[in-house]
Structures are given as structure tokens and as C-alpha cells.
Amino acid sequence: MMQKPQTSGEPVLSCHGLTVRFGGLVAVRGVDLGVHGATIHSLIGPNGAGKSTLINCLMGFVKASGGEVLLAGRPVTGMAAYKVAEMGMARTFQNIRLFGGMTVLENILVGSHRNLETSIMDLLFRRGRAAAEEARFIERARELLSFVGLSGKDDQLAGSLPYGHQRRLEIARALMLAPSALLLDEPMAGMNVVEKAELAGLISQIRANGTAILLVEHDVEIVRSLSDRITVLHHGERIADGLPDEIFADARVQNAYLGREMMHVEG
């Protein structure tokens, strides 16, 4: 079922005045952000602008020095990353972090932890319950594999997949959590034009399911065509936030980032 991007109402994922300090260095300074459901919200900015730090902080991998993060209206600031994941946030990593010693199917099944209903006692003594639950997870994992185009690769070791497939597997694994907010940290890095286009199509489909997507991406063309909304970071500060057309017309954005980047693209 197709869902229209929600630009009004409560955002699924938001942060207010979020600040991250590393010693004397301020990596993220008082950033406000609101990602709505069924929306692709891009986060752009030059290298070192604080994009990855912001993503890490949203999920609790980096401690916030100030400000707060809300997921579905509930505060998750300062929580351990696994708790934030339990509450419905999932992510992929800039440098792929698959579980290399597991098969493709097992990698996805790791995402079943959010929806566990059986206990360790069930595993040891009440096998029926546990087996039924496992069967449900496997069915869901296979659906996701076919969704990202990796059907039939269930038993391959994740570490032996080609690069592009590893990126897709990482997205499928994140989706296994059935997240309400999905953070994609440069999912297209190192891909060629065809692969990027395919992945863009996939991300649009995830949006169509109602997920709030925060996308960090360097490719301006992709960002322009894919995003519903864009936030620009520069030196850890938010310098612009709005619809793609507004952003690309903004003089500050062009100065800080796009001007140079566009020159690279065109020249």
C-alpha cells in the first residue's frame, strides 16, 4: 500500500538542539531535525560537517552533550543503542558492518531480536513455541531477501557476497527490525550509476511502506531526485532545511557545499 509523504503532523524521528562535543571540538552544534513518516529526508553537507556524528548520536552510539532525541514522540536521548533499536530505529553503516561469519539468511535473522516472544527456557524445554516463532522469522526474512533482490542466496556467507549485494543485505537486515525510522549512512558509496539507480528505487519502495528515512548521501543528483526534504549541515550546524528546490536555490548552501560539488559534477 502506497503512503503519501507526511510533511505535516508529528515527525517520527526528531531532535532538538542536539549537540555533540569531543573534548574541545564541537562536532554537532544545536541541530534541529524532524523526519516524518513515509518521507526520504536527506542530510547533506561537506566532509566533516558532522553528518555521521549526528546519525551515531541519534541512535545512541555517541553520547549527546546537549539537546534531545525523540522517536515516535518518546525521548530516547542517552539510551543504549540496543534500546533505541528496540524502540524502532534501525540503521546501516557507512563502512559496511555485516556479520561476516554468518550466512545471508542468518544475518537478516539477527534482526528478529526486536520482536522476540520466546525465552531461553522455551528454547531448551518448549521447543514447539520456539520453532513456530523461528518459522515466522524465516518467512519474513525470505520476503525481505526477495525485496532487496537477494533471493536464493540464503546460505552464502555474507562476507563472500559482492560489494553491492552486501549493501542490500545490510538494508534488508535493518528492515528486519520493522523500524519506524531508518537511518541510511551513505548507502550508495562506491557504487556505479546503474547500481545507484537500483538502490534509489529500493529506497523509494521502503518509503512507500511508511518508514521515515534519514539518508546521508553525497551524490547531488540522487539527493535531488530522491528527497522529500533536505537538511544541510556545515561545521556541525544546520544551515538550511527545506524542500529540495528551496535548498538548491539557497545561496548559503551553494557557497558551503553545492557550488564546489556541482563544479565537480559538471566539469
Binding site: F61, Y82, F93, L98, F99, G100, G111, L123, L177
Partner: peptide, 26 residues
């Protein structure tokens, strides 16, 4: 019984990449 289940997957996930394991709600 423990290894061939979500428990074993959680253990191997921690072994292979602890950060990613946390991101997967473990």
C-alpha cells in the same frame, strides 16, 4: 539448542561486529 537459535545468532553477531549487533537491538 542455544546456538541454533536467536541466542547463537546474537553471540556470533557480537563476535563479528559488536557495534552492528547493538544496532540490531541485541
Amino acid at each position: 539448542r542455544l546456538v541454533k537459535s536467536y541466542v547463537g545468532r546474537a553471540w556470533v553477531a557480537i563476535r563479528d561486529n559488536e557495534t552492528a549487533a547493538e544496532a540490531m537491538a541485541i
